[in-house]
Amino acid sequence: MNGVHDMGGMDGFGKVEVEPNEPTFHHPWEGRVMAMVRAMGANGGLNIDMQRFSRESIPPAVYLSSSYYKKWFLGLMRTLLDRKLVGADEVAAGHSLHKSPPLPRGTFGVKDVERVKTRGSFQRDVANPPAFKVGDKVRMKNINPPTHTRLPRYVRGHVGTIERINGSHVFPDSYAHGGGENPQWLYTVVFSAAELWGADADATVKVSVDAFEPYLDHDR
């Protein structure tokens, strides 16, 4: 979706402000939100792409004025409500009021913590060989789905070069919306700054994205 989350190349947000000796969490509730998101992913209640889409769907004015973990909280809440794991009446009451569907991997318990310390694997085999090879010129498709995608606006329509083939992975555009894993080849595509930002751009700058095969066309 063309949401406010897709920030690459926007102007007006000002300088980067670094906080010296920043704590891991600024409030205890932030840690609880992070832990709940990890736990509800690990027990099969939701997946990472659903979560991302929920955060991206936060209204722009709210998104821009909310702290990072508040966005996580709002996204988690929305995903849980959408998937009917939690009811609006329960949120209002602050308690469970009815039976909810069991989760694929049951209660997330202490024994499961070790597992979430390592990132999950999203690599999946596909039958077809990659359609592109290192060195190929590719044009990023001009797509504007109202649904989840990992193709940022600032590269759409632009021509880049395949630099790496990163294996085949779960396709977020499908996985966020109940379309299954639908794995696709994943490539690192590199662009000159001039291609992305115009002739005045810094000639020493190159930018890459990791792009799934359905985002790419041969540039002929």
Binding site: A35, M36, A39, L76, S96, G109, D112
Partner: peptide
């Protein structure tokens, strides 16, 4: 929210 998820048996607060 943590209370709700705990009561439903989705998460154990000690794991969080």
């Amino acid at each position: 929210l943590e209370t709700i998820l705990t009561e439903k048996g989705y998460v154990d607060p000690a794991a969080l």
